[in-house]
Design a protein around this nucleic acid. Structure first.
Lengths: 339, 339
DNA sequence: ATGAAAGCGCTAACAA
DNA sequence: TTGTTAGCGCTTTCAT
């Protein structure tokens, strides 16, 4: 069984020509219905399976795409991959996974392997592939789809509406009565967009929004440190909106450390709605990103590009999920602290 | 650039024969060093890239493996995939990702696609592929490697030493002074092994260990419900060891709900050390599974199988990570509650 | 409706 | 050391 049956084998057994068998297997209308059925039945009975490589070489199509999702994808990975897979398999594509290193020779080698396999398209992130890598793919005219990427380049992308997300967060806090909100972000496009949205909402609601940036490394510790450093100032705010959930959890820890209770003394809102957002204490109020949908949409667009259809970048709507880390300002006053 | 350069093209340009070029590109020692260099330089200059399909069809090797990791992999996914990828790419293999449905026609279709691509091996979980699927692969003599699978079948597997993990947890609790420990598990092999280890340690330390099972669905809610139902009995215990982190977080919530403080009143230990384990409140003491290593080992073993080398299933050692959800019994007494 | 034959890009035996 | 030739498994004209 290791040595697979070929079309030739079938042809020989059925006393037909290669081409007839091939046509029959591919449901070509030209072949006699009876012959076709005979061939297909026989093929099935001997567990015939076409050889994808052979087919690829003669049709020029591989139905293979690459998903280059770096290592620093904040546990989006799983859901995104799921979404990609969903529509890929439904449309007869397979996806080669790549969690390779950003830039460097490792990336080059990875891309080479993908190119050798004649993948028909690539899904990636701005942070999972270098500009050089993108250039290389573009030079070969391999369609690229950028995930979670926002409009900061010529490539087609799929992203959540970050500006709207920022809006939702601040609207929520404002409607809870908060008038002094801190935004904890960092130097990436999506953070900036979220801030802009937040700023707009703040203006609309007449509340104050002050932004601070956590430096470089976007992790919990950095957020913790930044928020801690800001400790005194924090007492001027009654709410903090964080650029993402990881920051938010760091912020919450820092706040608790300096004796502020969340949400009684200060509300915290995150962004992303990572898997563990409901698990922390208090459960995190956050802006939900539709991860699976993003993966699905990405793959759909990519396939469209592969098939040469016109496509447009897509922005998906986020949605606020209210949990335990945000509360009305009233509570705080009731707790006896002044604003 | 979309139409790739072929060996023929190179041969023509350099006025050499196909085979010489082919040999030169593959560093065959027979070819003249100068010719070889000339060929390689030219190839590089015109961005020649071999066609993997063509090569596969004539060598019979695809250097492709499938990773069938279902949907219910408790966020192991990312790290495992990472490990798999690491060694795969280092050894020149690519991996086709598959988060397909367990059983059913969807699985059949997925496997067919993998077979069509003539993958050389498959990494999967007991819970990500049906027995039927396994049978099919085995009939084709496609090497299978079972991940996180324990010794309950003829297949080669990679797993963490669950028994040892259970031991570690209970040893920790016992050495903290706890003498009445509850085990919250469920009806899966790994849970049973963890329980066995826990039981052994309990015996060694002369402490009482009572197991309960959460039914069917292994999620937080189920754990919550089960532990809540057990509420009265819980006051007889000073510690609970959970089959995994998801259960643990459910347990913690249930405990807090009935007014028990973790860890002051009751200690909780989990298993897995999922990404968010340090983020919850209190940070979870848990048995760490080396996920990346598992992925790496799995891929290494699979490649060995593919190359026809003898392999043995591997069991990796877990490691206890002490965080905030477990504390000495003393504390509790100090809090004025009786044991 | 079926068959013959060429070709996809590459490897590998064999010959020169 | 290089060239010739025959495949690998399949699709796809073009004849029949």
């Amino acid at each position: 069984m290791r040595n697979h049956i070929t079309i030739k084998d079938i042809a020989r057994s059925l006393d037909l020509s290669y081409s007839t068998v091939s046509l029959a297997l591919n449901d070509a209308p030209v072949v006699n219905a009876r012959t076709r059925q005979r061939v297909q039945e026989y093929a099935r009975s001997v567990n015939y399976r076409p050889n994808a490589s052979a087919r690829a070489i003669s049709t020029g199509r591989t139905y293979l795409v690459g998903a280059v999702l770096g290592r620093f994808t904040n546990s989006f990975f799983e859901e995104i991959a799921q979404g990609i897979e969903n529509v890929a398999s439904q449309r007869g594509f397979d996806v080669i996974l790549n969690t390779s290193g950003f830039g460097g020779s490792s990336e080059e080698a990875h891309l080479s392997r993908l190119v050798d396999r004649r993948i028909e398209g690539v899904i990636c992130t701005r942070y999972s592939i270098s500009q050089q890598g993108i250039d290389r793919l573009e030079k070969m005219e391999i369609p690229i789809l950028l995930l979670r990427a926002d409009a900061c380049g010529p490539q087609t992308y799929v992203a959540v509406d970050n500006r709207l997300g920022g809006r939702l967060a601040v609207e929520h806090l404002a409607s809870l009565g908060h008038r002094h909100i801190l935004y904890v972000g960092y130097d990436f496009v999506h953070s900036q967009l979220r801030e802009e949205g937040a700023r707009e909402a703040a203006r609309d609601f007449g509340v104050r929004l002050e932004p601070i940036n956590v430096p470089a490394a976007v992790d919990r510790e950095a957020a913790f440190a930044a928020v801690t450093r800001r400790a005194k100032a924090l007492r001027d705010f009654t709410a903090v909106f964080c650029a993402d959930d990881v920051i938010a959890v760091g912020a919450i820890q820092a706040l608790q450390e300096i004796g502020l209770r969340v949400p009684q003394d200060i509300s915290v809102v995150g962004f992303d709605d990572l898997r563990w957002a409901p698990l922390i204490n208090p459960p995190l109020t956050t802006v939900h990103q539709p991860q699976i949908s993003q993966g699905e949409t990405a793959m759909e667009l990519l396939i469209a590009m592969v098939e040469g259809q016109p496509v447009a970048s897509t922005v998906l709507a986020p949605r606020l999920v209210v949990r335990g880390s945000s509360a009305p300002l009233a509570k705080r006053v009731a707790n006896g602290r002044s604003v």
